[in-house]
């Protein structure tokens, strides 16, 4: 009999992500991993992953290019989220423009826009240009470009591929209802209705959210990675449980900030202190302060603030180091380069 046994419950793709990671990083002699699959996954939407997928695949030895081909993969350079007024906003994974002299691009854009009319800030995003192009570049070409990207997979195909990988790594896979719950030292529950993530006693709950594409992936992958990183003897792991819960809850707070930003009319009046601070500092000087355990990157926050109509009152003083003519030339060149690169990629 195994000394430690973990049972994971979820849809194929949910149990697949957790199972593949734990099979590779946790399973060992004296340990057992069982995946109880709920086959009733009626979600039609693709399973969108964030750029961290490349690291996770690398860590456990999953061939991204093969999965991309087998599971209907498509590159994702920005996540598309809905706002309260029904419009959508694209949150790019990579920076707008390019930073210069230690200062973010949008500070220069702000200054330039006060000198003369400029194309919208979003026109300076290579990520958005490629995301909105008629044809996405192939993986090999994307890897050569200065952009971060995730992958959208066919949910069922990717789930099945991960389950096969977990199985090959020693996990057992059963249909929900046939699992042996009474023997499990830990039950990992993937639940869209959980409210808050928690590891307490013999149950670890991953609270899944999917209103922003890529979030479901993020919650699953970071839960698995964090669990493996903290893994302790399951009979004696109170500090590890507390730390797992603390980190997961902290991340959820950051997600809640983004959700509120996308949904309320006046982010400056938000009752969430971290979001209010973000909005206030952004308005005051164009900086986006980060909190511990952010989920979204600064370009995503910038895009969201921008889309919600939050604008800085001024640009950073350091943007004034560049003479006016040089600044305007640079912006013109940059926009031309993005257009040209996008055309080249399309033509290839």
């Amino acid at each position: 009999m195994s000394a430690e046994r973990i049972l994971v419950r979820g849809t194929p793709v949910q149990a697949g992500v957790i199972g593949a990671y734990l099979a590779s990083r946790w399973l060992a002699a004296g340990r057992a991993l069982e995946l109880a699959i709920d086959p009733e996954d009626n979600t039609a939407a693709p399973f969108v992953t964030r750029p961290s997928i490349h690291r996770l695949h690398g860590e456990i030895g999953l061939p991204t290019d093969q999965l991309f081909a087998r599971c209907g993969g498509s590159p994702v350079l920005a996540a598309e989220a809905q706002t309260a007024d029904g419009s959508s906003v694209q949150l790019p994974f990579s920076a707008f423009g390019v930073p210069r002299g230690g200062l973010e691009f949008h500070q220069y854009w702000l200054r330039a826009s006060r000198l003369s009319e400029q194309a919208d800030l979003t026109e300076f995003s290579l990520s958005l240009a490629l995301q909105n192009a008629a044809h996405k570049p192939p993986l090999a070409q994307l890897a050569q470009l200065p952009v971060e990207f995730g992958i959208a997979f066919d949910r069922a195909a990717y789930g099945n591929a991960l389950l096969s990988f977990a199985k090959a790594g020693g996990a057992s896979v059963v249909e929900s209802g046939n699992e042996q719950e009474q023997d499990a030292d830990l039950v990992i529950q993937c639940s869209p209705d959980a409210g808050a993530p928690k590891w307490h006693g013999q149950e670890l709950t991953i609270a899944l959210e999917s209103d922003i594409p890529g979030l479901e992936w993020h919650h699953l992958s970071s839960a698995a990675r964090r669990f493996a990183s903290l893994a302790a003897p399951l009979s004696n792991c109170a500090p590890e449980q507390a730390e797992w819960t603390r980190l997961a809850v902290a991340e959820n707070e950051r997600v809640a900030d983004m959700r509120e930003l996308l949904s309320i009319n006046d982010p400056l009046a938000s009752s969430r202190p971290a979001l209010q601070r973000k909005a206030e500092v952004f308005v005051a000087c164009g900086r986006i302060p980060t909190e511990d355990y952010e989920v979204f990157t600064p370009p995503e926050w910038l895009a969201a603030l921008w889309a919600r109509g939050v604008r800085p009152r001024r640009s950073d003083r350091m943007a004034e180091r560049l003479p006016d003519a040089q600044l305007l030339d640079w912006l013109d060149q940059l926009r031309g380069q993005i257009a040209s690169l996008t055309r080249q990629v399309q033509a290839a």
């Binding site: 206030e280 500092v281 308005v283 005051a284 000087c285 900086r287 950073d316 003083r317 350091m318």
Partner: peptide
């Protein structure tokens, strides 16, 4: 990073 434009800079 937070260099103010004016003396009235409560957020910075």
């Amino acid at each position: 990073s937070l260099f103010p434009r004016s003396t009235d800079a409560p957020v910075e």
